[in-house]
């Protein structure tokens, strides 16, 4: 608990000096990159599936 209490103070300080330093969220960035890659794979696989059906206009 003592450790967390201290941590809360750190957040408090941080929110007072907002934006003074760049926020580091490398894990989130990697997560979103995984999302983007899955998105692209699914999206283009669907175009491929569409290309295989009868022609229609």
């Amino acid at each position: 608990m003592a450790k967390q209490e201290k941590a809360a103070d750190v957040i408090e300080k941080e929110s007072e000096h907002h934006g003074d330093e760049a926020h580091k969220a490398p894990g989130t960035f990697v997560l979103t990159l995984i999302l983007l890659v899955s998105f692209a794979v699914y999206y283009f696989a669907n175009w491929k599936a569409l290309a295989d059906v009868w022609h229609v206009r």
Binding site: A7, V10, I11, H23, K24, A25, G27, T28, V30, L31
Partner: peptide
């Protein structure tokens, strides 16, 4: 989709869970 998990990551890293890419998670 970025800012919400990033808010979690930044807070947890500040609380000392700063190990590697996904230590906070």
């Amino acid at each position: 989709g970025y800012t919400v998990p990033a808010s979690v990551e930044v807070a947890l890293r500040k609380q000392g869970h700063d190990k590697g890419l996904f230590g906070w998670l």
